[in-house]
Design a protein around this nucleic acid. Sequence first.
DNA 1: GTGGGTGGTTACCCTGAGGTGAGCGAGCAC
DNA 2: GTGCTCGCTCACCTCAGGGTAACCACCCAC
Lengths: 116, 116
Amino acid sequence: MTTLNRPGAPDGHACGIDTAMEVIGGKWKVLLLWALHEHPCRRFGELRRLLPGITEKVLASHLREMEADGVVRRVSYDEVPPRVEYSLTEDGTRLNDALRPLAAWGRARPAVRRSG
Amino acid sequence: MTTLNRPGAPDGHACGIDTAMEVIGGKWKVLLLWALHEHPCRRFGELRRLLPGITEKVLASHLREMEADGVVRRVSYDEVPPRVEYSLTEDGTRLNDALRPLAAWGRARPAVRRSG
DNA sequence: GTGGGTGGTTACCCTGAGGTGAGCGAGCAC
DNA sequence: GTGCTCGCTCACCTCAGGGTAACCACCCAC
């Protein structure tokens, strides 16, 4: 999205929305957020199995971006075979909470056609 | 996003999130939502001017999709020159409200680097 | 006749997110 | 020595969303 030049928006929320949208903008990021909320401290392979359909490449890049965004914490143990554990940061948990109303809206909405 | 096959998520919110993400997934949709919230009943040209940078094509297609999604109402007056007015539906207003926590999260978050 | 404004539509191109498949380095089981 | 696991990385390709620009039908002002 790059910088959104929200038009009028005096104290508007659009300015915050774009930040959030950048963070959750990836195809699997909300799922990842949710998975890490449900299962704290998950390993790469476990996450892959939790999100059937995601590829290693995308999982790795999403995790990396979310780590850079400060919503995911990555802990690497120097063992062999390698072990890496991912968990939500406090900010990530707050983000997850902030998504609740949106999820509720999605669930509560009237029957939508448009799916075809 | 198509159908998200949320992994474990028993009563999880991911199932609602994907619905919401489909609706607000367009590049300008949250801005449009916000613009229509701030200025109810706007015409096509006014919206275009409110969102500097958006093209007619994208504005038209976004409005059409949001209308199909039931968040935007389109009223066409049979005049000349043609006049069409767009406004939020109740559901659109609720969606906007549901975005507030997300916007608050975006505004309140600690300094992010990664912006480049 | 020319230009401006109305609300769009159409055809085309381009970028980037995401998918595909292969490989790597280390140790352990066999 | 072969193959398995683990956590990635790399090169390549696809495809859809979005940008560009021209055009339509209508009327008015100049």
